[in-house]
Design a protein around this nucleic acid. Structure first.
Lengths: 164, 164
DNA sequence: CCTGATTAGTTACATGTGAAACTAATGTCA
DNA sequence: TGACATTAGTTTCACATGTAACTAATCAGG
């Protein structure tokens, strides 16, 4: 991550297909869309629902607030996703008796079974996607991606996120 | 891009915050949101409109079909964006007399002025974003990104895209 | 305590979106 | 030439989403 003497940045031309923000958005869209097909068509759930399930599967019990923060989703999106999963019996909600504004959400038995089914598909999707890229390149890629994500969070004004 | 002997891929755990599709979608969202603020707040245009302007600024004259293909946007999105820009006098439309189904869209004088104003802001945004990342790392990053984008296009089922 | 500010979560509303249906023009092939 | 398929672009419809307003509970600090 060493700095480099940058050109004066004056009047370069803009080529959209090389423009990083554009490229990142396009690849992010493909990620979302591709993965959405994997579990959307098979299990009939959308991306927000998937994110909720993923977080609960990983952390066990969370409040909606936690889920939103961890998975970068707006609170209304979380609210609706949790309500939908609740309706389908995939999660349980238990009021926190120490703070009755919030509720602990967790996967139900059926939710856990679904999670166990989805995870291998998600990992397989990821593997097929990065197949053939060397470990070295991938390491660099992920490091840069982390920097861009963190900086992007600030440039974007942080807040809540979208699909995938 | 050399291949590597992969682990059996069997029962790894899933960690959403390290899951590539998720990470790419998040960073793509930040890109879109951040850039959208740059010209959205200043010029009152949205992301689809920006993409249309960017393509026209780069290529001069295009049909809506071309714009959609170049900027990865659904034809209905292009249609609405062009209509909006037309309404504001930022583009002109001229029926192709050799094929009267399509029309050539181009930036008007006002559109060109707007383009000239936006481009430096967009490039500055990009520069601030990648500031401090070494040229070597950036090169690797962009190469991997290109591979992921191309493969993602197929995994997602191709088609039309979104914001940024 | 008790009033005002804050927080978790939901709901109402306006907007943006894609799928599908549609219109009009062109291409195909007999 | 004439019927059928295809293509550019628009419009309709249903749905997902963010903003803002709202409810209910907790916190701060006088």
């Amino acid at each position: 991550m060493s700095t480099k003497p940058k050109p004066p940045s004056a009047d370069r031309a803009l080529h959209l297909e090389q423009f990083l923000p554009y490229r990142l958005n396009v690849v992010g869209f493909f990620a979302s869309r591709g993965l959405g097909r994997v579990y959307g068509t098979r299990f009939g759930i959308g991306i927000p629902e998937w994110r909720v399930i993923a977080q609960l599967g990983e952390f066990g019990q969370l409040t909606s607030r936690d889920i939103g923060e961890l998975s970068q989703m707006h609170k209304t999106k979380v609210s609706r996703a949790v309500a939908e999963l609740d309706k389908r019996g995939l999660v349980t909600r238990a009021e926190n008796r120490a703070d009755r504004r919030e509720a602990f959400v967790a996967l139900s038995a059926a939710g856990l079974r679904l999670y166990a089914q989805i995870v291998p598909l998600a990992l397989a999707f990821e593997e097929r996607w990065i197949e053939g890229i060397s470990a070295d390149e991938l390491r660099v890629f992920e490091r840069v991606l982390a920097v861009l994500t963190e900086r992007g969070r600030h440039l974007a004004g942080a807040y809540q996120t979208e699909e995938a």
